[in-house]
């Protein structure tokens, strides 16, 4: 199921929290070779995790982490403005109607990654519409561009740094009309279930 949790709520689900930060280390350090910080516990965290971001997490039936991503409003410090200004045409993207999404991660435990990716993107669309946002701006690796396209909701790429598998891109999603039907089909979920997870998380 999809969980929407602020960082200060993660301690309620310690297994989920542990697995997420371990999986992030696996993906971003081991697999992609990004210059990320991994602590003594093997957790990959950065300064933005300390800003009480909102995580969207796919929780596996055993309670642990299937995949996740992280949201922060662009009115505060965000990775795209702090580190990737060259990929946005030099624009410091700043609006309460635009949130940043980063650290899109799927656990190596997951066999069918497409479904989990689709469920996460679907949850992102739910969040964008539910909170009346206009756009999300994301930082992701080159491989994700293809995955997002295959899921039926590709971001507009504003810039790319590096080549081949090492490339990092910044892209934009528009929340006006996310392709909910397509995303639901890819995720193997019906919209009502997705909406219910969102509503329950925020007690709507």
């Amino acid at each position: 199921m999809i969980r929407y949790l602020y960082a200060d709520q993660l301690d309620q689900l310690p297994d989920l929290k542990t697995a997420m930060f371990l999986d992030r280390a696996q993906q971003f350090q081991a697999r992609l070779g990004w210059q990320v910080q991994v602590d003594v516990n093997g957790f990959e965290t950065d300064e933005y995790d300390a800003m009480n971001p909102l995580y969207v997490i796919w929780q596996l039936p055993d309670g642990t982490h299937g995949g996740s991503m992280r949201f922060l409003p662009t009115t505060g410090p965000v990775m795209v403005n702090d580190h990737f200004g060259d990929l946005t045409g030099g624009v410091q993207i700043t609006s309460p109607l635009i949130w940043e999404v980063t650290r899109f991660c799927v656990s190596p435990k997951v066999k069918v990654t497409g479904r989990v990716s689709a469920a996460l993107i679907l949850a992102g669309a739910e969040l964008g519409q539910g909170f009346h946002l206009n756009h999300a701006v994301g930082v992701f690796d080159a491989r994700m561009v293809r995955i997002y396209r295959a899921l039926g909701w590709a971001p507009d790429i504003t810039g790319t740094r590096g080549d081949g598998p090492d490339a990092i891109s910044v892209g934009l999603w528009d929340f006006q009309a996310p392709p909910f039907d397509k995303l639901c089909a890819r995720a193997g979920l019906c919209r009502e279930v997705s909406q219910n997870w969102f509503s329950r998380a925020f007690q709507i």
Partner: peptide, 17 residues
Amino acid sequence: AISEHTLRVYLESARFK
């Protein structure tokens, strides 16, 4: 030489600032 979505984000950002 940008997409319309990108233009909308630039305009939104400028509007807010």
